[in-house]
C-alpha cells in the first residue's frame, strides 16, 4: 500500500514546476554537503531497521532460491543425497508433454483470471470512488478476500457440485442440463479462474481505488471546464493517470495467478485427466508425491524465469515506473 501512495506525492509537489526533471530534483531534497556523513550515520540505524526483514529475506527467500537452483541440477529424493546430473532435468522438461500441458493450462487460467478480475475490479473501484461512499459497502467488497483460499475453494466446490450443489439445482430449475463444473475438462479451469476472480476482485478494486484517489481533482475540474464528457474523461484522464497503479496491480496479480495452487489442490488435484494440472501443482506432484525434488526444482526455476520475464515486460512496456503527472 505504501508504495502506491508514495509515488504520486513527490510528483505532485513538484508538478507545479514544469521544467523539473527527476534528476535535478533529487539533490535539492537531500542536503548536498552533509550527504556523505549522514549516509554513514544512517547506515547503522538503517541496517538495524532492515535487519528483521533482511534475516527473513535471506533465510526464507534467498537461501531456498539458491538451494532450489542447485537442486534443479541434481537428482534428489529427499532421503539420501542430491546427485549432480547437470542439465538433464531441463532436457527432460523440454520433452515432457505434461510440462507443456501445464504451461498451456496455467496460461488459460491466467488469461481468464486476469482479464475478468482487472475489468471487474476497475468497475468496482470506480463505483467505490463515485457512488458507494459508505465504508460498510466498501468493506463488504473485501469480504471474499478475508476468506482463506482453501475455504473459498471448498465453499464453491460444494456449491458447484454436480449432484448436490445448489448452483446446479438452480440450473435445473431453469430447465437447463446440469454442468460438471469441476468434472468436465472444458469447465474445470474456467470454474477455478472464476472462483479466484470472485475472491480477489474486491482486493484488487481496493488497490485501484487507492490509485483513483491519488488523481488530483484539479485535472478533473480542468477537463469539465473544457467540456469533456464522462467517457472521454475516463479514457483520457483517469486511465492514463491510473497507469502506474494498474501496472503494479497487473504485475502482482499476474504473478499471483501464475502461482495458482491451493484451489487446484483442494478440488480437482490436476484432473480431470490433465485439465487442471497447473504448473505449481505439477511441481508439487513431482517433488512431494513422486519424491523427485530435482525435477520439481527445475520446474520451479523455469516458473521463476517465466515470472521474471513477464514482470519485466509488463514494467517495461507499460512504463509502470513513470507517472504521467509529471
Amino acid at each position: 500500500m505504501t508504495t502506491l501512495t508514495k509515488h504520486p506525492d513527490p510528483e505532485l509537489s513538484a508538478s507545479g514546476k514544469p521544467g523539473n526533471s527527476r534528476k535535478s530534483r533529487k539533490p535539492h531534497k537531500r542536503g548536498k554537503p552533509a550527504a556523505g556523513f549522514r549516509g554513514i550515520g544512517d547506515l547503522k540505524i538503517a541496517l538495524l531497521f532492515i535487519a528483521p526483514a533482511m534475516v527473513g529475506f535471506l533465510l526464507f527467500y534467498l537461501v531456498p532460491t539458491i538451494r532450489g537452483i542447485y537442486l534443479s541440477f541434481t537428482e534428489y529424493s529427499i532421503l539420501g543425497d542430491p546427485e549432480w546430473i547437470g542439465v538433464k532435468n531441463y532436457q527432460q522438461i523440454v520433452k515432457d508433454p505434461l510440462f507443456w500441458n501445464a504451461l498451456g493450462v496455467t496460461s488459460e487460467y491466467v488469461v481468464i483470471n486476469i482479464v475478468l478480475q482487472t475489468l471487474l475490479a476497475l468497475g468496482l473501484a470506480i463505483l467505490m470512488h463515485r457512488v458507494a461512499k459508505s465504508t460498510l459497502i466498501r468493506g463488504a467488497l473485501l469480504l471474499p478476500y478475508l476468506m482463506a483460499n482453501v475455504i473459498a475453494a471448498l465453499l464453491w466446490f460444494w456449491m458447484l457440485d454436480y449432484q448436490i450443489g445448489i448452483v446446479n439445482q438452480f440450473i435445473e430449475w431453469f430447465g437447463l442440463p446440469r454442468v460438471a463444473f469441476f468434472g468436465s475438462e472444458e469447465w474445470a479451469i474456467p470454474t477455478q479462474a472464476l472462483i479466484n476472480t470472485w475472491r480477489h476482485m474486491g482486493y484488487t478494486a481496493l488497490l485501484i481505488f487507492a490509485g483513483l484517489q491519488a488523481i488530483p481533482h484539479t485535472v478533473y475540474e480542468a477537463a469539465s471546464i473544457d467540456g469533456s464528457k464522462a467517457f472521454s474523461t475516463f479514457w483520457r484522464i483517469t486511465l492514463p493517470l491510473l497507469r502506474p497503479v494498474l501496472v503494479l496491480v497487473l504485475v502482482v496479480t499476474v504473478i499471483g495467478s501464475f502461482q495458482v495452487f491451493d484451489t487446484v489442490a483442494v478440488t480437482t488435484q490436476g484432473g480431470p485427466v490433465n485439465a487442471t494440472r497447473v504448473l505449481q501443482y505439477y511441481i508439487y506432484q513431482r517433488a512431494f508425491n513422486e519424491q523427485d525434488f530435482g525435477y520439481g526444482s527445475a520446474l520451479a526455476v523455469i516458473l521463476f524465469l517465466i515470472l521474471a520475464i513477464v514482470a519485466f515486460i509488463q514494467m517495461k512496456f507499460l512504463r509502470g515506473n513513470q507517472s504521467d503527472l509529471d
Partner: peptide, 19 residues
C-alpha cells in the same frame, strides 16, 4: 455415473443415499 459427475462426490455416500 460418468466420471465427470463424480469429481468431489463420494461413491459410498451415494450408495448410502440410494443412488
Amino acid at each position: 455415473p460418468k466420471l465427470e459427475t463424480t469429481v468431489g462426490a463420494n461413491a459410498p455416500d451415494a450408495f448410502g443415499a440410494g443412488k
